[in-house]
Design a protein around this nucleic acid. Structure first.
Lengths: 114, 114
DNA sequence: TCCTCATTTGAACAATTGTTCATATGTTAA
DNA sequence: TTAACATATGAACAATTGTTCAAATGAGGA
């Protein structure tokens, strides 16, 4: 905040606002969620699972992607606790594991369609 | 959906879900919003402007970034209609231009702090 | 037990993205 | 009109990210 002294700062306003900005870690966590949803493949996966659970190869078909590509993205979504999985016979079924994400998606849908 | 015939598809479920997935363009637009918020500098900018309008160099201080870097990111946010700007004397003041984004951010804050 | 098949993994590559630096623009105030 | 200053821009670079391909797991069913 005081790196360079000859700045055009409205010192007071900057200080005011600075107080309201969340901590770096909080921001990083928010960024991570937005990043997770900020990719067409991953968003499509989540949109699909919003309807019902699916196995990896079905998701691949729904996304028009390789099983492998989908698996990579599912790992990311799993790591972020956005989806969870369970085995059923030979296949592994993925489903949504986070209600907040559902709200985020509905809200962005609203925004796009408004 | 029918590229490869020997898939382990639950044909029925896939068809069902396919109907509920938004069009490609819609998905792209949603992705763009999430991408816009999925960067620490841009998210910090938006969080700052949530409190009050600021000029570029004040934002730069708040983000610990170069005026130039901030300017680049502001252009992206402006293009996406997330922020708007107006001149006041020598400086250009930026502010939030999209209420949906405010909701998105509050929701992700919720999620992180849960 | 062994074979099959769905899923995962790792490395490599291509593409996208953010920041930096130098420079350009354009408005204000003298 | 001009000098000073805030902001914007473009090119270059580094870093991150997504997809592909080949190969490895590992559980289920024969």
């Amino acid at each position: 905040m005081d790196i360079c002294e000859q700045k055009c700062i409205n010192e007071k306003n900057v200080q005011e606002t600075a107080k309201t900005i969340p901590k770096k870690e909080i921001i990083e966590q928010m960024v991570d969620i937005f990043k997770a949803l900020g990719d067409p493949t991953r968003l499509t996966i989540v949109l699909a699972l919003l309807k019902q659970e699916h196995c990896v190869c079905d998701i691949a078909v729904l996304c028009n992607q390789t099983d492998s590509a989908v698996s990579h993205q599912l790992r990311i979504l799993r790591t972020m606790k956005i989806v969870k999985n369970k085995r059923k016979g030979k296949s592994i079924y993925y489903s949504i594991d986070d209600d907040h994400v559902v709200s985020l998606i509905n809200m962005s849908l609203d925004h796009v369609q408004h």
